[in-house]
């Protein structure tokens, strides 16, 4: 099962990013293989619709769980429709590796 964690950088020691649609990077963690992969968010500087475009991308990637600081209204609706689990953490002190350690 794939989990996406919004990240401010492309390394596991990077800080967690509280934004979803405009997060700098996405960390894709696969808990069956233990694979960690970073994908740059091309919508980070989009004028509008970042949340929608990012949600569509998550569906494409077949992600089942997303960990972020907040989800916009449109993103929430879309993710709910596709049965993707949303997790909100409001602590930006976490690094990506802290979060991966928690969900393992």
């Amino acid at each position: 099962m794939k989990t996406v964690i919004t990240s401010s950088g492309n390394k596991v020691d990077a800080k967690f990013d509280l934004r979803f649609g405009r997060a700098a990077w996405f960390c894709v963690f696969d808990d069956t293989t233990g694979n960690v992969e970073f994908i740059e968010n091309e919508n980070a500087n989009a004028g509008n619709g970042a949340g929608t475009k990012t949600s569509e991308k998550m569906v494409e990637l077949d992600v089942k769980k997303i960990i972020s600081g907040d989800f916009g209204p449109k993103a929430k609706d879309l993710l709910e429709k596709f049965d993707i689990q949303m997790v909100i953490i409001q602590n930006d002190e976490y690094s990506i590796s802290d979060i991966i350690a928690k969900i393992k």
Binding site: D83, I84, V87, K102, I103
Partner: peptide, 21 residues
């Protein structure tokens, strides 16, 4: 336990925390 806020989509049957289980 970990103060995360999360959804449980209808495809999941287990009612556990998405972060710390």
């Amino acid at each position: 336990d970990c103060h995360a806020i999360f959804t449980i989509p209808k495809t999941l049957t287990e009612q556990v925390c998405a972060l710390c289980s």
